[in-house]
Amino acid sequence: MMTETSKTIAAKALSLLDLTNLNDDCTPDAIDTLCAAAQSPHGNTAAICIWPRFVAQARKVLGTGHPVKIATVVNFPSGDMPLDTVIAETKQAVADGADEIDLVIPYTAFMAGDEAAVREMVEMIKAQCTAPVRLKTILETGVLEDPALIRRASEIALEAGADFIKTSTGKVAVNATPEAARIMLEAIRDCGRPAAFKPAGGVRTVADAGIYLGLADEIMGEGWATPQTFRFGASGLLSDILAVLDGKQGASSTAAY
Score class of each variant (00 low, 15 high):
residue 1 M to V: 03
residue 5 T to C: 10
residue 9 I to S: 01
residue 12 K to E: 14
residue 12 K to R: 15
residue 13 A to K: 05
residue 15 S to R: 13
residue 17 L to F: 08
residue 23 N to V: 00
residue 32 D to H: 10
residue 37 A to M: 12
residue 43 G to I: 07
residue 44 N to W: 01
residue 46 A to C: 14
residue 50 I to G: 09
residue 56 A to Y: 03
residue 60 K to H: 07
residue 64 T to P: 00
residue 66 H to Y: 07
residue 77 P to S: 12
residue 84 D to S: 08
residue 84 D to P: 00
residue 89 E to M: 08
residue 96 D to K: 11
residue 105 I to V: 15
residue 108 T to M: 13
residue 108 T to F: 11
residue 115 E to Q: 08
residue 116 A to W: 03
residue 117 A to C: 10
residue 120 E to R: 14
residue 125 I to T: 04
residue 130 T to K: 15
residue 134 R to V: 07
residue 137 T to S: 13
residue 137 T to R: 02
residue 139 L to T: 02
residue 140 E to R: 06
residue 140 E to G: 04
residue 143 V to F: 01
residue 143 V to H: 14
residue 145 E to H: 12
residue 148 A to T: 07
residue 150 I to V: 15
residue 150 I to T: 01
residue 157 A to K: 06
residue 169 T to P: 10
residue 169 T to E: 12
residue 169 T to Y: 11
residue 170 G to M: 08
residue 171 K to I: 05
residue 171 K to A: 15
residue 174 V to R: 08
residue 175 N to T: 06
residue 180 A to G: 14
residue 181 A to Q: 06
residue 181 A to H: 04
residue 185 L to I: 11
residue 189 R to P: 01
residue 193 R to N: 03
residue 195 A to V: 05
residue 200 A to R: 05
residue 201 G to E: 11
residue 201 G to V: 06
residue 205 T to W: 06
residue 211 I to Y: 04
residue 211 I to T: 15
residue 213 L to P: 00
residue 215 L to E: 08
residue 215 L to H: 03
residue 218 E to Q: 15
residue 225 A to T: 04
residue 226 T to G: 13
residue 226 T to E: 14
residue 230 F to T: 08
residue 230 F to D: 12
residue 235 S to F: 05
residue 237 L to F: 03
residue 243 A to L: 15
residue 245 L to R: 07
residue 246 D to F: 03
residue 249 Q to A: 15
residue 251 A to W: 02
residue 252 S to A: 15
residue 253 S to R: 05
